[in-house]
Design a protein around this nucleic acid. Structure first.
Lengths: 244, 244
DNA sequence: ATTTATTTTGGACAGATGTTCAATCTAAAC
DNA sequence: GTTTAGATTGAACATCTGTCCAAAATAAAT
């Protein structure tokens, strides 16, 4: 991968607009293809073709295939983590021991909002991290990208639920993260299952039905409360969004 | 892949013991490697090497790489589905509308018991289905292998919880399956998270702590009850195994 | 013991893969 | 306009990939 020289003896240049554009195109193509076909299923030539660029340029800008993959994962991970930590900080500014539901929402909403938003890059990225989360090959990468923030949320939950056993808290968090990723990768499965129960046609009368992200938060809250031995919150209250 | 001839004009033979053994070795090697490195990350030559066999034999016994993969997935899937349906049938023989917790246990325990049991083949298989569940490449395969049983469980839950919206039931079921698979692939993450909260050492005082499978059932039950609007079960009662 | 369906072998194939290289082109800095 | 760091190109590399084939070895059936 190209690195600007740091020798003081040679003059330096800033990258040209064209170079910046190809660099962006390569990363975008890599993000989409990795999410669609996985790491091993994507070749550097596929990426080059999707970016409308020579294969050699992928190595030039992205370095090793593995380095490119990790760079793609890390790039949006830091933005996501920042958004999560900001939401958590805002929450704790209002009250030092926020309710579990609010903490979970601060963790879940930043990703789900982006995954269901207009940016196809975020949709692809969400699928990507769902895929690598189950892959032992990327344990170190996922741990590096997401564990610090997860640990921080875990501490806040522990402070809010002092009677919770760390073992159960950890399990509940992992369960909830898995459910969140399933909502990203398996919408089709939810649809198919709901349709088969409904008869055939998917009556999309989403007027009074919960947004699925809110359903996820409701599910995760109740599951964790049960695990932490706090007793579940009233379901009617839980079924409505926290802040509106 | 070799197929016994069905022409009536030619005599037939039963497969030799040696051939059966190589066939078994190839499937076992494929199962382990696919689970460890995924479909694209595993080559037929890797499988041949692990099975101590010539690469050509993998094609001879397993057919196409993709056919071998699907055969590996389907083989244990049918045994697993049979175990799940048997557990469900036993449950409904006792009472026609069993409680949600018992239904979930009938779905979750057959896999978790095998995944934590002595057979390394089942451990590998559990990781394998966790990996392909997130991969869009295998939608058709996973649907074919697991959807019929999931749909049957969904119907039983719907009968037990008549007020439940099909949309929420489907979402809750998918969330619960995801949590179950996470318990298989992410035990290390639960450990790391619990340890970081505990200080450093993992005090393995598992005397009074729930088995993790029971914790999962507890979590899934509470989450689904919240989604289905039934109100949560008392957490103390939920925290104990159902049948002992 | 002979027959022959089945199994195994070693090698080959055509193509894809990640990466590198010298040569060329582009455009920022002066 | 000249210089030259930076960007791009096309080709090449060594290796690996899935699959196939003729020939040979094995062993079930007679």
């Amino acid at each position: 991968m190209y690195q600007a020289k740091t020798d003081l003896g040679t003059r330096q240049r800033r990258p040209s607009r064209r170079a910046q554009e190809t660099r962006r195109a390569i990363f975008a193509a890599a993000e989409a293809l990795f999410a669609e076909r996985g790491f091993d299923g994507t070749s550097t030539r596929d990426i080059a073709a999707k970016a409308a660029v020579t294969p050699a340029l992928v190595s030039f800008h992205g370095g090793t295939k593995q380095a490119l993959f990790e760079a793609v994962v890390q790039a949006r991970a830091s933005e996501l983590s920042a958004a999560r930590e900001a939401a958590l900080a805002e929450l704790m500014a209002a009250q030092p021991r926020p309710p579990l539901r609010a903490i979970l929402a601060a963790f879940i909403r930043p990703l789900m909002a982006r995954a269901t938003g207009p940016d196809p890059g975020w949709r692809a990225y969400a699928r990507l991290i769902a895929m690598i989360s189950a892959d032992p090959q990327w344990r170190a990468l996922t741990a590096r990208c997401f564990d610090p923030t997860v640990a921080r949320f875990s501490q806040v939950i522990a402070a809010s639920c002092p009677r919770a056993a760390p073992e159960h808290l950890a399990a509940g968090l992992v369960f909830s993260v898995a459910a969140m990723l399933a909502l990203i990768t398996s919408t089709w499965r939810i649809d198919a299952l709901a349709d088969s129960a409904n008869g055939i046609a998917a009556e999309n009368d989403s007027g009074n039905q919960l947004d699925r992200t809110e359903a996820l938060i409701c599910y995760a809250e109740a599951g964790m409360l049960a695990l932490l031995g706090q007793g579940a919150a009233p379901s009617q209250a839980s079924a409505r969004p926290l802040v509106g």
